[in-house]
Computed example of a mutant assay.
Amino acid sequence: MARKKSWRDMSTGQRVMLMISGAVNLTLLIAAQRSLAKTPEAQIRGKKVLWRAASFINFFGPVSYFLFGRRRDSGLVTAKR
């Protein structure tokens, strides 16, 4: 079994990619949490508390919330006849 690399064992490119992926993950988490706080319960599929918990799963939680957790109106206004 290969041992985990420490910070010192990583190349500069690996360190940069790790920091970028961490920043993206944190940004997605903050965006999902903020959206959950501002969005009414009626516009969210499922319970807010479950989406809050799921958003802490690296990358997949926040992305899942934005793709599947929010209800989207079609945005089309139908004309009355």
Rank of each mutant, 00 (worst) to 15 (best):
Y65L: 09
N25H: 13
K48R: 11
M19Q: 15
A53T: 09
W51C: 01
G61V: 15
E41Q: 13
Q33A: 05
A2H: 08
R3A: 03
M17G: 09
K80N: 09
R8Q: 10
G75V: 08
T78S: 07
V16Y: 13
F68T: 05
A37R: 14
R52V: 02
T12I: 09
F60Q: 11
A79N: 03
I44D: 02
M10K: 09
A53K: 04
L18F: 08
E41K: 14
T27P: 02
A37H: 10
T27S: 10
Q43A: 15
F59C: 10
G46L: 03
R15K: 15
V77P: 00
R52E: 06
T39M: 09
L36S: 01
K5Y: 01
D9E: 06
M1L: 08
F66S: 14
R81T: 02
D9H: 02
R81P: 05
Q43V: 03
A53Y: 04
G22H: 07
M19R: 15
S21N: 11
L28T: 02
I30L: 13
K48L: 01
V16G: 15
G13C: 08
G22M: 02
R81Y: 04
I44Y: 11
D73W: 05
A37L: 12
L36V: 00
T78F: 00
M10W: 00
I20K: 13
P40V: 03
G75Y: 11
V77C: 06
R34K: 07
L18D: 14
R70Q: 13
